[in-house]
Design a protein around this nucleic acid. Structure first.
Lengths: 181, 181
DNA sequence: CTTACCATGTAAGGCGTTACATGATTCA
DNA sequence: TGAATCATGTAACGCCTTACATGGTAAG
């Protein structure tokens, strides 16, 4: 149950904001949602067809100049299904950090190796934080729109998180130096 | 590549600390590693057999009083494979938070619904934080042992993270109250 | 004219959970 | 005596990524 697919709700959610193509949905997953969710074309397109058969979305040919393009819109049935799901408590919040895994078993490679993992992680965090701060800045100009408010909350979450990751990096590096001696 | 299975390295890593049974490995996954990694019996036992066939672990019958029990130990080949993997940069650090997903699409259910998700999340965080602080307290008495040092770093990571989550919860609730008016 | 991007889709295969199956021991 | 825990394992099934396949347009 906790491991059932969520892609249908993700797509319905995106379409609840505005009609768009599958390609555009992928872009949203890679930008706005990238911090806490993901997905590939291989799961987007089949799910969209399934949603159409269930009457939760409608297709509309939006091709222009011979470039194939399908615009999807959410239906009342789809919106109801989305709302129903949204009302239920979140089932699973999980993190999977290979960095922490490698750190946990760090004894095999020693403090040197552990330090390298932390430094690489630190760089990644700085990059992500920069992206999130950009989102924050952009969003701050459009906070009147309600959908942006929710987006803003998730961006704040990300910023807080990465900031605390960076603080941990400092502390961890300090501890390791201490242990090296 | 980033999505190849890691279970073999997880099990090798656990066995690099000391020999143990598959059942015990599952318990470690559910305690020490629970914050950043997971796994079920359905993936542990088959992987252990695979590792044995690859010569990376050895089995030893450790049954007592008719209770079936198999103790696994890591071999030199296994330790080499583990080290090799540990030296490589982490490929994927990802979070999947259904809570944030539901929050992101919060416009469909409004501030009330969003607030409820945040409060449930807050409770979960408090529980997790309490567990982590217990680990921290226990570990602090045994920090001379090197393996515990690495464990300690990951616990610190968890504590920092949940603390910042809780701060975000406060801020998010405050913002929502403001927006409600 | 070539690279990047827009755009849709399928097929294969791996990974991992859930559920099932079995049985012993410990503790209340 | 019943529940919880120890202990191992398999089978079915679902989900998702990767890779492949195709073709148009825009920009440099």
């Amino acid at each position: 149950m906790a491991n059932t697919k969520k892609m249908d709700y993700v797509l319905l959610g995106l379409l609840s904001h505005e009609p768009m193509t599958g390609y555009e949905m992928k872009k949203r997953l890679d930008s706005s949602l990238r911090f806490f969710w993901g997905g590939s074309f291989g799961s987007i397109y089949p799910t969209l067809n399934q949603l159409e058969q269930e009457g939760k979305v409608t297709k509309e040919n939006a091709s222009s100049n011979g470039r194939e393009k399908i615009s999807y819109s959410i239906t009342d049935i789809g919106r109801e299904a989305l709302k129903e799901w949204l009302k239920k408590p979140a089932e699973k919040d999980e993190i999977r950090y290979e960095t922490l895994l490698k750190l946990f078993f760090g004894n095999e490679t020693g403090f040197e190796g552990a330090g390298e993992h932390i430094e690489r992680f630190e760089e990644k965090c700085k990059d992500e934080l920069q992206i999130l701060r950009m989102f924050e800045e952009n969003l701050s100009h459009y906070l009147e729109e309600d959908t942006h408010k929710y987006y803003y909350l998730t961006v704040q979450f990300g910023i807080r998180t990465y900031e605390s990751y960076l603080k941990w990096c400092e502390e961890a590096k300090r501890l390791i130096e201490e242990w090296k001696r």
